[in-house]
Amino acid sequence: MKTQKNPITAFFTSREGYLAIFVAILFVVLYFTTNLSGSMYIFLRDLAYLIAGGLALMMVIMLGEIDISSGTVLGLIGFVTGTTLKMGIPIPAVLLIAVCVGMLNSAIIAFVTVRFRVPSMIVSLAMVKLHVGVFPLLPDAGWVSNIPSSISDVGGARLFGVFPVILLFALVLLIFFCWFMKYTRFGRKVYAVGGNKESAKLAGINADKVTFLTFLTSGALLGVTAMMYWLPKTQVIPSGTIGMEMYFLPIAVVGGVSIMGGTGRPIGILVAGILIAMLQRACLLFGLGNQYVYLSYGLIVLIAVYATVSDIKIFKGKKTVGGAS
């Protein structure tokens, strides 16, 4: 009964595959009914940070944890990077600083979660309030204006007139994580700890260590996300990031990461990221307000969660192999 599926058929019969087909259809419809081609560059540029942020949340959700502060931390990082960029520090060094700030934030959440057994939901919620409380205390309420256009031009660099360079970075990141989750022991351990903590311990895996390191990875990704978000802009407004975790969370959930932990693939993040970025664009192009963006997110998340928890045939072909069930 050993069947070796062709990888392409395997993909298009998986959950991510169905989603990809849906997204492709939506794309074609949008392309021909609206002026999507006109705002293609912005669409692709937004996709970059959505992929990075989606990956960051994927890591923690895969563990069965969550990081609600993944939105507001971008504001904090933005303040730091904006300030340092204005000081003339080279972009690679600023990227490193951004990664460090992101890791620090996640390290705090992970430490409290692991050490004191406080659910990460509560800890990261507290972090959100800390961030929001800190913004007004920063110089100029954290606003960094008049970032030289020589810098924002680097962020806005494009290939062939339409393809943003930062999206290239996001795709490299995505490919790295596809490899990382499948081909490293650490990647496998993340699935194990998220899937069944007790079994993981019995398999000799240090669950606390894995949790901590996964949060650090997620934090580093958020650092990159912040850079991708702010670098093309000439102005940093930290309070604008409030609620941005609600972009990343749907991407992870729609992308097939079970909120209970243990499942999900980075490729799903790509597909779901395109979906969310497209919905954003679609609502703007149809002249619909933000309220419709949120409505569509809400509905999509509900459908995705329902698909995960229920046995919808199309998503979950149930079959029994070898012996009684």
Binding site: K2, V321, G322, G323, S325
Partner: peptide
């Protein structure tokens, strides 16, 4: 011959 490497464990029976 009975159990495929790529089968998801959730889809296996108790004996498998």
């Amino acid at each position: 011959k009975e159990i495929s490497f790529d089968a998801k464990v959730d889809d296996l029976g108790v004996a498998a």
